[in-house]
Simulated scan of single mutants.
Amino acid sequence: MRENTTKLCADKSNKNLKSAVYIVGAGPGDPDLLTIKAQKLLMAADVILFADSLVPQQILDFCRQDAEIVRTANKTLEEILPLMIERVRSHQSVVRLHSGDPSLYSAIHEQMYLLAEADIPFEVVPGISAFQAAAAKLKVELTVPGLVQTIILTRISGRTEVPPTEELASLAAHQASLCLYLSARHIEAAQAKLLEHYGADTPVAICYRLGWPDEKIWVVPLDKMANYTHEENLIRTTLYVISPALGEVIGRSRLYHPEHTHLFRPRG
């Protein structure tokens, strides 16, 4: 089915894509969660640079057979950037494919700065982030009226330090729905900081390789989060969702309540 759909879309794609760098979010891993725009760009681009340690090979099925595929997991920015600049200056279109959404932990800031400095046109195309895919898989809403109305996306300090004002324990004090990225290697420290403000029985979803064929999700109490992480030998590609919304929830939005009036549903 996908082969037919891909061919149909490819026939309609813009084969004369503007020579530029397209920084594209690949989503969490499932090729079906690519945006339509991302698919069109992949099918039209001359060159694809992708983070092969974080983006599944199957996503390349959308690419042209004659496209140049460049794996970047073993490359530095100093190797990647000149390649993108040279290809665009040679009148080729380049897709720089990142996992998830480019606005989160994707190191695109320095790429955009240097591309602009080199007078290379670029565009950013958003993708679905892992926290959104996790909520969908768990069949939960992370903002439940009367329970929680804030989502915090963060990480614990590691080789990349977080600013002191964003220290995990201070964010945990809000007791919001907290989505913890890039923290599996420091899970004991993360658990200890979270327990300063969340109850030990607060539900935690441990989400490993969301959208990949070997995806796994466990929902455990917060005080068991580190144990499960070690038992399953999780050291990367793991998202933690800590939220009261994962428990037994009773709540209702005012939006569709019969007593709630608004512009499109006036009283009477």
Rank of each mutant, 00 (worst) to 15 (best):
I206N: 02
P221G: 09
S177C: 06
E166I: 01
V148L: 09
C179G: 09
L210M: 08
M225K: 02
R155T: 09
V162D: 03
I217H: 05
N227G: 07
R155A: 12
T237P: 00
H186G: 10
K224M: 13
Q149K: 13
V144F: 02
D223T: 00
R159Y: 07
I187Q: 08
R209W: 05
G158L: 07
V148W: 00
P163N: 08
Q191V: 02
E232N: 14
E141A: 12
I152H: 05
L147T: 11
A205W: 02
P221W: 04
A184T: 06
T237I: 03
N227L: 14
I217N: 10
Y181T: 07
R236Y: 10
S177A: 14
P163G: 06
Y181W: 09
S183C: 10
S177D: 10
L178E: 08
G158C: 08
W212C: 03
Y181V: 08
L222A: 06
L168E: 04
P145Q: 10
E167I: 07
V144T: 11
A189W: 08
V140K: 13
E161R: 15
Q191K: 06
V219Y: 03
S157Q: 01
T229F: 02
T160V: 12
E161S: 14
E215D: 05
V220R: 01
D223M: 00
D214R: 07
A184D: 06
N227K: 13
P163Y: 09
